Simulated scan of single mutants.
Amino acid sequence: MVATSYLLGVSTRRVDRLVEQMGITGISKSQVSQMSKVLDARVQAFRNRPLEGGPYAFVWLDALTQKAREGGRTVNVHVLVATAVNADGHREILGVEVSSAEDGAGWPAFLRGLVARGLSGVQLVISDAHAGLVEAIGSTLPGAAWQRCRTHYLRNLVTKVPRSARPRVATPVRTIFDQPAAEEVHSQHARVVASLQAKHPDAAQHLDEARDDLPAFTAFPRQIWRQIWSNNPQERLNKEIRRRTDVVGIFPDRTAIVRLVGAVLMEQTDEWTEGRRYMGLEFLAKARLRVIDGGPCGDETDQQAITA
């Protein structure tokens, strides 16, 4: 009961009240932590399981910061999380790791571990521009393209202009994603770069430098563009993780972070497995054909609205 309460994000104070109602005099934070260790074996089995659901055409990567005690002080550590769509069209948590820094050393080791466990068939990796991540993708996942998250990119882009001009810059950039076909996306990207050049040259240069990474989604079927052009699905998962970890605040060590976050991700994967498919099998088949054909496989059907 204590371990389940811990997993659900119930505070130690509330657990204490609950056990008192069951006739137990009280329970401390250290006792809650000790009892919650029953989760360790399950979490480790989940983290180290063979990745047998591939090929995993689309992979989302993200990192979130947590506080932990190390060497008598409180430090920030980064929790690296990988999510993918498996061959059956369901989302699946591939792995979770705690790194000292979200840098070039953390990502390659994390991705190499996923490959060793069976990650294969990756066509597109969707993420923010984390330090060292693009190089890590190239070195560990040869052949995979990188889609820079459009939501995070726009936040970065508007910092290149005065606050008063941000709406005027953001609006035309969003029109790049409104286009119904791959060719029009690239053409609109070029037009927006040209339109920004006169008044906002820094923003224009920033957008021009992203001409390969920002529209990478256009190489895949039009019907799934909205699902692969941003890291928004991963951000929703991060909110659920933070909802559970905020109750803890500062973790006693990294093992405690892995225990709680790993248990949350294990639970989420079970829910996805039992739920509806995230992507249709026909679209996954088209995405895999991209490897053979070596070209884009988008079409002009079912234009969808964009949410910023």
Results as ranks from 00 to 15, higher is better:
45 A>C: 11
56 Y>G: 00
51 L>N: 04
37 K>L: 14
49 R>G: 13
19 V>N: 02
15 V>P: 08
37 K>C: 10
45 A>N: 14
43 V>L: 10
37 K>E: 15
16 D>N: 13
39 L>T: 02
32 V>A: 05
63 A>G: 11
63 A>H: 03
31 Q>Y: 09
19 V>W: 00
16 D>F: 02
44 Q>L: 15
33 S>C: 15
19 V>I: 12
20 E>M: 07
53 G>K: 08
21 Q>T: 06
56 Y>C: 03
41 A>K: 14
45 A>Q: 15
35 M>A: 14
55 P>W: 05
50 P>V: 04
44 Q>V: 11
19 V>Q: 02
62 D>R: 01
17 R>C: 05
59 V>F: 02
23 G>D: 07
15 V>M: 15
33 S>E: 15
29 K>W: 14
23 G>T: 04
16 D>L: 03
40 D>R: 03
54 G>T: 10
55 P>C: 04
60 W>R: 07
57 A>T: 02
55 P>D: 04
30 S>F: 10
26 G>V: 09
53 G>M: 00
33 S>I: 08
58 F>C: 00
37 K>N: 12
18 L>H: 09
56 Y>K: 06
58 F>E: 01
14 R>P: 03
14 R>H: 12
26 G>R: 01
51 L>E: 08
27 I>V: 14
18 L>A: 12
59 V>T: 05
29 K>D: 15
29 K>G: 15
47 R>K: 14
26 G>L: 01
22 M>S: 10
18 L>R: 07
22 M>G: 05
62 D>G: 02
60 W>H: 09
17 R>W: 04
57 A>W: 01
52 E>W: 00
25 T>F: 00
16 D>Q: 09
47 R>Y: 05
49 R>Q: 13
28 S>F: 02
21 Q>G: 10
51 L>Y: 01
56 Y>T: 07
19 V>S: 03
33 S>R: 11
47 R>T: 02
20 E>W: 03
15 V>S: 12
59 V>P: 03
40 D>F: 06
52 E>P: 04
13 R>V: 12
14 R>E: 13
60 W>F: 11
59 V>Y: 00
40 D>P: 03
26 G>P: 01
29 K>A: 12
37 K>G: 10
54 G>V: 07
44 Q>I: 12
34 Q>G: 10
21 Q>C: 09
61 L>E: 05
27 I>R: 02
